[in-house]
Simulated scan of single mutants.
Amino acid sequence: MAEIHPAQRVAVLADAQNLYHSSHSLHSQNVDYAELLDATVDGRELVRAIAYVIRADSPQEESFFEALRDIGFEAKIKDIKTFGDGSKKADWDVGISLDAVTLAEKVDTVVLCTGDGDFSRLCHHLRHEGVRVEVFGFRASTADELIAAADDFTDMGERAESVLL
Rank of each mutant, 00 (worst) to 15 (best):
H124L: 13
V133A: 09
S58Q: 13
V31N: 00
R132Q: 11
A11K: 00
V163E: 07
E45I: 14
G157M: 12
L122T: 06
V133P: 01
L103E: 01
G86M: 12
D116M: 11
A67R: 01
I54G: 05
N30Q: 11
F83E: 10
D99C: 03
D57R: 10
G117C: 11
L112A: 02
L36N: 02
D85A: 11
Q29P: 02
Y52W: 08
A143N: 07
D85R: 06
L122M: 08
K76F: 13
E134K: 05
T40F: 05
Q8V: 15
L98A: 07
S25P: 01
L165H: 07
A34Q: 04
A90E: 05
L126S: 07
G130L: 12
L68V: 01
Y20Q: 07
L36E: 00
H128F: 10
A100L: 14
P59Q: 12
S25K: 09
I71R: 00
F119Y: 14
A2K: 13
V107L: 10
V41T: 12
A140D: 14
K106S: 12
V163C: 10
I80C: 09
Y33W: 07
D32T: 00
I50L: 11
V107K: 04
S162K: 10
D85V: 13
D79S: 14
I147A: 05
H24P: 02
S162D: 10
V94A: 13
T40R: 00
I71C: 03
R159M: 15
P59E: 13
A2G: 05
D85N: 14
N30Y: 11
D85L: 11
I54Q: 06
N30T: 09
V41A: 06
V110D: 04
H24W: 14
G117R: 09
Y33Q: 02
E74T: 06
S97L: 10
H125Q: 13
Q8G: 13
A140S: 15
K81S: 14
C113Y: 00
G137T: 15
V12D: 02
A140I: 08
L36C: 05
D42E: 12
D155N: 05
E105A: 13
L146I: 10
H124F: 11
V111I: 14
